[in-house]
Amino acid sequence: MASTQTAAAGHEKYYVPESSSLAVRATIGLVMTVFGAGLLLNDMTFGDPEASTNSKWVLYIGLAFFAFTLASWFRITIKENLQGLNSAQLNHSYVLGMFWFIFSEVMFFAAFFGALFYVRQLAGPWLAGEGEGGRMNGLLWPGFEFAWPPVTTPQEAVGGVDAQAIANNGIFGTSERSMAFADAHHWYQWLPMWNTLVLLSSSFTVHVAHTALLKDQRGKFNLWLGITVGLGIFFLFLQAAEYYEAYAHFGLTLNSGIYGSTFFMLTGFHGFHVAMGMTMLLIQLIRSVKNKHFTASDHFGFEASSWYWHFVDVVWVFLFLFVYIL
């Protein structure tokens, strides 16, 4: 081998794993999942809902396989760490990986927040015939007035699909009530506020758990991590209650125009991320309780999950502000 491959002194060796079937298995799982989901959606929307039972199975099997593969992937990674194969440098790669993964998630939410701001600041007023971009829109949607939360959709304002001057792409209903903060007297009945409290305190409890871990107090760590997971589950429960109320009592659905669209997409994806973060923390809890994993100096699995949890929390603060309050 050639010339200048002299080693720089004092450098640890980087662990490059042997070849592994994980990636290919995960691919099979992922592709089956999305393919099944595609089949299912198309059967339901365009085709024959009966056929969807079959496509469902493609989805379920794919999903199960995918989840199973990911689980063994993480198990192997943990094992390698326990065997001491990971250098400090490799651990730093994991840190960077997690950080930039969270950044990409931030950008995903940014797209939906962007949509929210756009319809509220620009599209809505234009549809109501206001401002430079919509001077003449009164021709199309006479009587439509813009407000947030909206009182009607443009389509309803003109009297439904049949009375629309143009374009019949869709049927939208309107919420009878929005989820915004309306009634100061019943603030204690207002779920989003409780959700905020729950999630903020969970960020605090996970921090307490972290501090305990740094002091090697396993009992305290387990306790506070357990409380965090519990709060996460409670949050999801409250959100489910809120959705139920929205559908059952307020008539606020995915179909009820842009308010329902932005509301459910933003809070829904957030809720999904809470569920993921909660699962991640739960796994860390199990690892700690059952296997006595983690030490004061080596606990990246927990740390990454807690970053994720803080990220989910910050997103909620923005949601609370822009979806519920303002």
């Binding site: 319809v119 549809l127 909206p150 869709g170 659905t253």
Partner: peptide, 15 residues
């Protein structure tokens, strides 16, 4: 397409 939202439809308040 599949769930009736109206991000890109003016009739529902989107654009």
């Amino acid at each position: 397409i599949h769930f009736g939202t109206s991000f890109f439809s003016a009739a529902g308040g989107g654009d």
